[in-house]
Design a protein around this nucleic acid. Sequence first.
DNA 1: TGCAAATAGTTAGGCAGCTAACTATAATGC
DNA 2: GCATTATAGTTAGCTGCCTAACTATTTGCA
Lengths: 167, 167
Amino acid sequence: MLELRELPDAHILKKFADRYPDADIDQILQFLTFLHVATDLSNGLDRYLASHDLLQGRWWVLILLMREDDHCASPSKLAEKAGVSRATMTGLIDSLQRDKLVSRSTSNKDRRQTLVRLTRAGQKKLDDVMPDYYRRLNQLMSALSKQEGDMLMSILSKLRQQSAVFD
Amino acid sequence: MLELRELPDAHILKKFADRYPDADIDQILQFLTFLHVATDLSNGLDRYLASHDLLQGRWWVLILLMREDDHCASPSKLAEKAGVSRATMTGLIDSLQRDKLVSRSTSNKDRRQTLVRLTRAGQKKLDDVMPDYYRRLNQLMSALSKQEGDMLMSILSKLRQQSAVFD
DNA sequence: TGCAAATAGTTAGGCAGCTAACTATAATGC
DNA sequence: GCATTATAGTTAGCTGCCTAACTATTTGCA
């Protein structure tokens, strides 16, 4: 996602609104600011994870595995839950396996299927990363009151319902 | 940014909260939902732009050039305003120049400097893309009342002030 | 004035995402 | 019961992002 460092000022917005009459300045600012802040936070999270040799993709795979009672899942399930293609998941698992944070084995029931398992080192990596992550998240979200947090969830829900507008 | 397709349910959140006492379930849900919706919208925008042979990076360069009164800017200024590295901007300009949407020329005053100019075809591309973009944006943001829009901006501003929490 | 430092842009190489095409295995149905 | 179809995973090749290193040019100061 793009890190728009310079949101338009009133002069520029007017220039665009003159050429494109459908432009609504308040809506544009709300949308761009929304993407801007989300990108900032996402990049910040990546910087934090990078200090532990992770990025969101690899980190998310570890978390998805820890969610499972037996700490196991197939690559396709992981791809689906993480929202990436199976090809991308292959690469993520390759790199996690290189770092010995997960292991691969072939299923006996269905020999097409691979089982990915969180290793002891993978669990330790999460135990290193998560407490500090939650403390930082707490600091971040404490900027909002209980009421603002509820309001945010309500607004996000309304925006999500419109997510097909670009299709 | 990751498209987390499966947000945690109450059972999973409890499992994590048990192992990591600093986890605050409401805060985690707010944060993940925020990133999730933003990613959805960003991907949607990219899909729309892709139907016009653009993506956010290339599109943003055209917009930044149109903002300028002479439709010109240097690669470093563009990189700074778009929030990408100068190396990335070189690639974006290369690809826009291949499509004849921008042109390059060397500055006379400072022969280190390149001037990137929006071509007539580049302006036409924006005239193709922007009206429909603004109409879709209008549909998206009309899901929020005036009051909700103001609230969103206030919430985003508070979150942005915390954006260093991950450093 | 001439050399060191700063600046503008590009190139090289890496990573993480994608789609499309491929291999191996399993399921289905005539 | 064998051929077709579907499914799981990987590979190949593309894109756009990054940092670090490089070239060319300008600036600044001793």
